[in-house]
Design a protein around this nucleic acid. Structure first.
Lengths: 122, 122
DNA sequence: CCGAATCCGTGACGATACTG
DNA sequence: CAGTATCGTCACGGATTCGG
């Protein structure tokens, strides 16, 4: 009996809900997708995830680090250099999250069509 | 040449980004997970997704309907009855999103341990 | 010059009251 | 029961400043 079936993200007070809230998030998804390619420094991460602000990137990385999904490597250099990479646990999340990104890219034409239809009929 | 490789969720202005923003969302994930079990009326959806407010449930369902992921069925009854179900397109998203929920439930103990370690060391 | 902290506005979200 | 409307709150997110 190694599996614990009592966790349920649909239950408001279940701890697993707090984990879902963190991973079911646009910035988390994009950051994990980029980190899936390998260890990346802060600046490059910020460039790769277009449109994210420095503050939000820092905060999201902190939360991911706290949840054990990302590790942080600081180098005592000038200018400073900080690199991030997925942990073993984080790597198990890369598949599900990149699947989301691929879904969005694969089905965007259908989604755009649906939006046109909805906006025309309402 | 049926695949369009130009879409990229990491690009700020790419339309696929707008779709990712909608699906990489906690409420979307939970609603789609519940709807994966079959057509559900508003009241039951609100009960199943613990903690969601009526306002947010309505708004999220509207957005999902607009994107062609959910269909809405209104019955002319008193009291009113409205049922929601996944479209064919929405069903293709059920796998990826329920995978997220299952990840959260399967790895929550590791996440909780990581949080304890982080909070102790920082 | 890079990474992170600070300040502050906006938007998401919940609660409540009300209508069909 | 299924929304809509209004309002208050608060976290998210962007611009700016600071530190090294």
């Amino acid at each position: 009996m190694s599996y614990e079936p009592d966790w349920n993200v649909l239950t408001a007070t279940c701890p697993s809900r707090t984990s879902l809230v963190r991973i079911a998030n646009k910035w988390t998804a994009m950051i994990v997708i980029v980190l899936g390619k390998g260890r990346t420094r802060f600046r490059d991460l910020r460039t790769a995830v277009e449109g994210i602000s420095g503050k939000v990137l820092t905060e999201t990385l902190r939360d991911l680090e706290r949840d054990g999904l990302v590790s942080r490597h600081v180098f005592a250099e000038v200018p400073p250099r900080v690199e991030y990479e997925l942990t073993d646990l984080g790597r198990t999340l890369h598949g599900p999250l990149s699947a989301l990104g691929q879904w969005a890219e694969a089905h965007i034409t259908e989604v755009l069509d649906a939006r046109d239809r909805y906006d025309r009929d309402h």
